[in-house]
Design a protein around this nucleic acid. Structure first.
Lengths: 195, 195
DNA sequence: ACCTGAACACCGTTCAAGT
DNA sequence: ACCTGAACACCGTTCAAGT
C-alpha cells in the first residue's frame, strides 16, 4: 500500500493503543508510540482523534462494548442465579482485560462533553438493572427503586475487579479468586434484598 | 532564607504535589511544576525522591496514614455497629480526599520493591480485620478466616468510593450519598456473615 | 480528505559544577 | 550535603505544505 491513505488508521491506532496499554499500563501509553506502531507520523492521529485522551476514550468505549457483550452472553433463566452469574462474568472480563479496565475507569477525560463512552457503559449497566427488575417481578427481590439494589452490587463488583487488577488484594494477602468472592458476595446481597 | 538549604524540601514537595493533584487530577501532575511551587529547580527533587512516581508514592503513603487515623477515630463499641461506622468513615475520607485516593489506588508504581506505602495501607486494613475478629469473638460473625469477610466489605467500600470519586455513579443516575449506601450494604453483608 | 515535516512548549532525568 | 544550570531524549499539539 502507498504511505498515504492508510485505510483504517483510526482502527489501527485503537489496536496499537490497546497493545501499548496492555504492555506498559495506562500510564506508559504515548500517542507518538501508537502512531509509530501504526506506521504514521506523530501528527497523523489528529485527523482521527482530537487528543490523546480522545483516543483513550475510544479504547474505553470499545471495552464497554465488549463488557456488555460478555454480560449479554449470560443465559441463566432463574433471576437469582442470573444475577450471580452476571457478577462472575463482570469480574472475569475485568481481570482478563485488566489494563483496558483501568482505562475505562481510570482518571481519564470523562468530562460532560466526552460522554461518547457512556452509551456503551450505560448499555452494560442496563443489563444489571434489567436483571434486577426481573428478579423483582419474580418476587426474589422486594419492591423498590432498581438503583437501590444495583448500586451496592456494582460497587462490590467494581471494587473487587479494580483491587485485583491493581494488585492491591495481593498486598494484604488475599489470594482467593475474585470470581468466587463475587459469587458469594452477590448471593449475600441478594439475600438481604429479599422481603 | 538563602536559596540553598530549603529546610524541608521533601515536605514542601509533598505538599505541592497534593495541591497539584487536587487541582488538576493525578494525571495533570508534573514534577517540574511541583518543584516550581516549592521554589527550587527542576532537578532539586531528585535529592529527595528517586523519581516522579516515588514522590507520588509518598503522597499515597501520607494518604494511607490519614485514612488509618480516620478509621482509628471510630469509637463504637458494639461490633456490628462498629463495622458499619468503619465503612461510613472509609467512604467519607475517600470522597473528601478524592484526588489523593486516586493516587493511592491509581495506576502507580506499586512494584514489589516500592512497598513503602504498604505499611500505612496495611495498618488501615488491619483496623478492618481487627473489627471483624472482634465481631467473631462476640458471636456476631460466624467462625472462619478473617479475610473471607474482610474481602467483600473492602471491595464494596473501595468500589463505592472510586465510582463516586471518578464520577461514574452520576453517569448512570445514582445520586444517593455513598455513606448511606455504605451503611446499608455493610449491614447487609454482616447479616449474611452471621451463623 | 489524509498525511508529512518542522516547529514549539513542556516534561523526566542526568550530571558536572557551584555553595 | 544540598542545590543550580545546562543538556538530552521524549512527548503532545499545531500548522503550513505536500499527494
Amino acid at each position: 500500500v502507498s504511505p498515504y491513505h492508510h485505510g483504517d488508521l483510526r482502527r489501527a491506532l485503537i489496536d496499537a493503543a490497546l497493545d501499548l496499554v496492555a504492555e506498559n499500563g495506562p500510564k506508559g501509553f504515548s500517542l507518538t508510540e501508537a502512531a509509530r506502531r501504526a506506521g504514521v507520523s506523530a501528527a497523523a492521529p489528529y485527523r482521527h482523534f482530537a487528543s490523546k485522551d480522545d483516543l483513550l476514550a475510544a479504547v474505553a468505549e470499545q471495552g464497554f462494548d465488549q463488557l456488555h457483550a460478555s454480560l449479554s452472553e449470560v443465559e441463566e433463566a432463574d433471576p437469582a442465579t442470573r444475577l450471580v452469574a452476571l457478577g462472575v462474568a463482570y469480574v472475569r472480563w475485568a481481570v482478563a482485560h485488566g489494563a483496558q479496565y483501568q482505562v475505562m475507569f481510570g482518571t481519564g477525560s470523562k468530562r460532560p462533553e466526552d460522554v461518547g463512552w457512556m452509551r456503551a457503559g450505560e448499555r452494560a449497566f442496563a443489563v444489571l438493572t434489567g436483571a434486577i427488575a426481573d428478579a423483582q417481578a419474580a418476587g426474589v427481590i422486594r419492591a423498590g427503586g432498581v438503583l437501590e439494589f444495583a448500586t451496592p452490587i456494582w460497587a462490590l463488583l467494581h471494587g473487587l475487579a479494580s483491587l485485583r487488577v491493581g494488585g492491591d488484594l495481593g498486598h494484604v494477602g488475599i489470594t482467593e479468586p475474585v470470581d468466587a468472592v463475587a459469587a458469594r458476595a452477590v448471593a449475600a446481597l441478594l439475600a438481604s434484598f429479599a422481603c
